[in-house]
Amino acid sequence: MSKQTDQGRRDFLSRAATAAAATTVAPGVFLHSVADAAPRAEPVTSKVRWGMLIDTTKCADGCTACVEACDVENGLDLIGKPEGASDAEWERQRPRWIREVKLKDNLTDRITTMPMLCQHCEFPPCVDVCPTGASFRRADGLVLVDRHTCIGCRYCMMACPYKARSFIHENVLLKSTAVPRGKGCVESCTFCVHRLDQGETTTACQDACSKDGHQAIIFGDLKDPNSAVSQAMSKYPTVEVRADLKLNTGVRYTGL
């Protein structure tokens, strides 16, 4: 029994272990495009900007693979409905990092389905308004919340034009090591930062979408002209949601 557990734990830690080995092989060498996992040793820099391209024409109506994958990856489904909460109210209060929306064009009636998530703006309104600086933009373009300094004022949620953020309304009993969370802080999509910092280059939503054969989500480094996401963006016309606000979002859409 205890042997099995040890093995299980090794499984849990295997990622970190291989990674550590990989870095010892080439100490000091750091390439952002390396595919083999290695925990980051150097601070992130602005040489990389993580971004995402969502092809709405490939996004299937009724498919929620990305949403479910995000929930599992980030432990969002470990949060239970508190006893006594009504279902309807709970749905409004539970956190969501990515969601499906379905749009109808007012003129042409054309239907579009697409996922909405934190757009990882270059000029994020949430960061501007945060009184303590807990909302911040990491050098590599991720817009994150430092939940050690978040006081739970929710001004960022007021400021976000995409309604991308959630507040944790309840005590969190089941916790995961990779994605900690607790009552009273605001959070939102991190582009699976715990993966990226281990040297991985995909997000859970992207993996799920590919696995289902849609390939609607391409994720990668916007500053690397050879990355899949840059290549795709140079080929198709892309739009920002609420481009009028000039936030230079890291998430772009085609076919919208």
Binding site: T64, R99, E100, V101, K102, D105, I111, L256
Partner: peptide, 16 residues
């Protein structure tokens, strides 16, 4: 919030 001008949100997983 008017996230998508000229479009109507007809379904959403997060109360849009």
């Amino acid at each position: 919030m008017a996230m998508f001008p000229d479009k109507t949100i007809i379904a959403s997983g997060f109360y849009d």
